[in-house]
Design a protein around this nucleic acid. Sequence first.
DNA 1: TAAAAAATTTAGATTAGTCTAAATATTTTA
DNA 2: TAAAATATTTAGACTAATCTAAATTTTTTA
Lengths: 216, 216
Amino acid sequence: MNTFTEENYLKAIYHLSLQSSSVSTNQIAASLNTKAASVTDMLKKLAEKGLINYTKYQGVTLTAAGEKIAVSIIRKHRLWEYFLVEKLNFKWDEVHDVAEELEHISSKELVDRLDDFMGHPKYDPHGDPIPDSNGLFKTHELKPVATLVINENGIISGVRDHSTAFLQYLERMQLTIGKKIKVTEINDYDHSVILQVEDKKVHISREVANNLLIAI
Amino acid sequence: MNTFTEENYLKAIYHLSLQSSSVSTNQIAASLNTKAASVTDMLKKLAEKGLINYTKYQGVTLTAAGEKIAVSIIRKHRLWEYFLVEKLNFKWDEVHDVAEELEHISSKELVDRLDDFMGHPKYDPHGDPIPDSNGLFKTHELKPVATLVINENGIISGVRDHSTAFLQYLERMQLTIGKKIKVTEINDYDHSVILQVEDKKVHISREVANNLLIAI
DNA sequence: TAAAAAATTTAGATTAGTCTAAATATTTTA
DNA sequence: TAAAATATTTAGACTAATCTAAATTTTTTA
Ligand SMILES: [Mn+2]
Ligand SMILES: [Mn+2]
Ligand SMILES: [Mn+2]
Ligand SMILES: [Mn+2]
């Protein structure tokens, strides 16, 4: 099929495509911690295989075939993360690196049975949607807590930053997926926000409010 | 750590070491479907890393460090096979290839938690012992059904041939791990054997009797 | 709109793993 | 115990993925 490395490139291009329609060499290099020259080489190979549309100096988009592969990798990544948290009692901040390896296990039978075993979960531990066996999933509409006004409420449904540091911080503050929150105060000076979470008040910075997402 | 390929070499050397004390270049090449020249190159690298004892033309043995890695790969292989059969409802003849990939997932935390989740199984679906988290396991004593005499009985506890064809044949004959069998007849001419298995008689060839193992 | 800056590609190396063919060592056998 | 046969290693080449440095293209800016 495709190498481990090719799969990682396709996944990176897919994620970057959600931001901008066309993806640049440097964006890919940054996201994969590699050099632009290496990216150019790989882009030629992926174009050769019909997985991306590539014109020199013009950036790339995924073809339908490339997107299908990218989505299947993402399905595996998120299902494994769900498994690790729900069945093996990992914390939500501990699963990403292991899932980066598990997502490359090739058996489709395996991932489909894993999906059955867990009852077809719709979202991974970070609130990201899990594509079904046909690659279909809702791109759910989320917005940052920072966009709420006083007295607005919502349900925590995702994060924009997946770093261990951020996830651990949220865990400590009890700002986890599914929690109902209400904005009680917004600081004019630094745009920090005070939330009502269950029976407690939690004070978060503008940065945190930007990276914490609620369902619309 | 070590590459996927290095791990496969160590595992192959480990398995071959169970037969003969020292393992030859050609034996390794055959077991990994590669060429002797490639094996020589890898042996130099593994010796350099202190994982094998290698003297030109004299074959190799694992060092303690090499054996530790080999056993940890085998632990992962067998635990994943158990998981696939017991939790995901794979058949015992369908799990080996997937486990060949899963055994290279590096997280020790993952495999230890998987072990916990499944209640620390002692044997994999083919009857092979699963090393514990410290690499310890009983090398259980098994002997081929072919060594039994008339009226001797035993419990099916392992296989010498792990091929899909053989496992499917055994499944069809209901000769699966844990079944109690008794030798009722041995054919002088072709050494085929008739077994009593539960309420049925099963006729197996000498070859099958040699590859089907019972606890001593 | 021409020069400067930034982005991207090309050229040329490097490393891991593999191969074939040739050379060398070991083992078998007569 | 010296050929012959077999096993193993070496030599030299190839592919995938990576890198640095140089060349080229695109974009920005003055
Ligand atoms: Mn993740
Ligand atoms: Mn996730
Ligand atoms: Mn196996
Ligand atoms: Mn097994």
